[in-house]
């Protein structure tokens, strides 16, 4: 019913049947992720959906139990260091880095590991994000750590960014600044980015692809343009007792509106859906495109319904 394949590549990231269990609980369940080269792919899903596990699997930090992944043409299980050399990573949460280190020293530490580290760029990013080198990492707030992590992820100019909740903890001004720098980075490098989030409206302006993960399953993935074209809300009225078309395919949600009005959220070609509703005796009053965040919610509901 919902789209789960983006067709032919080239893909910066592609997984086939990726499965990961913790104890007996599946964190990922047969995920077929496809991130086209040059795409800004937003992976949305509630907390615990498996987003972080998926990203960690792509970096070779978590070992999948089944399935395979290809990242920039490499298998992270056998070429983890190569993948990480070409990838900028913002991990989930604010912990992890050396709390005893000063920010400036942590930047030097990272610089030593990346041959492509651009000191001037790192300096510019630090100034833009107000990352102060004299501060101790352990004394930074959650938002300050997030900004530091963004500098660390971007400053070696990777061709792929894997950002796990990158706006978590950022105030609106810092978020705008960070997303602006991210746009610049993508314009400069032509790279690809995966942004995982449970707050999709925060990255609405950047996204050109959407994937929805729930309970370890990729419910849907599609280019934004297709999402906006295919996912619509239809408002229609009919005679008393009218229930609408019985076999309307692609229905994600159906609700009773005011009076004799019915509302459907449907994945399908608008013309076909309108024709089906009309053929069943209803009159379509309105067809509306869903905002990005509402699209995510609708796709999450679709999974619940199924």
């Amino acid at each position: 019913m919902l789209p789960t394949s983006l067709g032919e590549g080239p893909f910066a990231v592609a997984t086939q049947g990726l499965t990961k269990r913790y104890a007996r609980e599946p964190a990922l369940n047969g995920v077929d992720l496809q991130i086209p080269e040059g795409a800004v792919y937003v992976l949305a899903g509630p907390n615990g959906a498996g987003k972080s596990t998926l990203i960690r699997s792509l970096l070779g930090l978590a070992r999948p139990d089944a399935g395979r992944a290809t990242v920039l043409g490499l298998d992270p299980r056998t070429s983890g260091p190569e993948v990480r050399a070409r990838t900028g990573y913002v991990p989930e949460g604010a912990g992890g880095a050396y709390g005893w280190m000063r920010v400036g020293r942590l930047l030097q530490h990272h610089a030593a590991y990346y041959a492509t580290w651009d000191r001037d760029y790192a300096g510019r990013l630090s100034r833009a994000l107000d990352v102060r080198p004299e501060r101790r990492v352990g004394a930074l707030s959650k938002g300050q750590v997030r900004r530091l992590q963004l500098v660390l992820a971007l400053a070696h100019r990777p061709s792929l960014l894997l950002l796990d909740e990158p706006t978590d903890g950022l105030d609106p001004a810092a978020r705008d600044e960070a997303l602006g720098l991210l746009s610049e980075h993508l314009a400069d490098t032509g790279g690809s980015v995966l942004i995982s989030t449970h707050l999709p409206h925060e990255v609405d302006g950047l996204a050109d692809h959407l994937g929805v993960l729930r309970g370890g399953r990729l419910v849907a993935q599609a280019p934004r343009e297709r999402l906006e074209r295919m996912l619509r809300v239809y408002r229609a009225e009919g005679p008393d007792g009218w229930v609408g078309p019985e076999d309307l395919s692609g229905v994600i949600d159906r609700r009773a509106g005011v009076g004799r009005e019915l509302r459907w959220t449907v994945w399908g070609e608008e013309g076909e859906v309108v024709a089906r509703i009309a053929a069943s005796g209803g009159a379509v009053r309105d067809v509306a495109r869903l905002p990005f965040e509402d699209s995510v919610l609708a796709l999450l509901r679709a999974k619940e319904a199924s």
Binding site: P81, P91, Y113
Partner: peptide, 12 residues
């Protein structure tokens, strides 16, 4: 549990 060290481009 997800050491910082592991995120760097070196065989673990």
């Amino acid at each position: 549990a997800g050491a910082w060290l592991w995120t760097l481009p070196v065989e673990r």
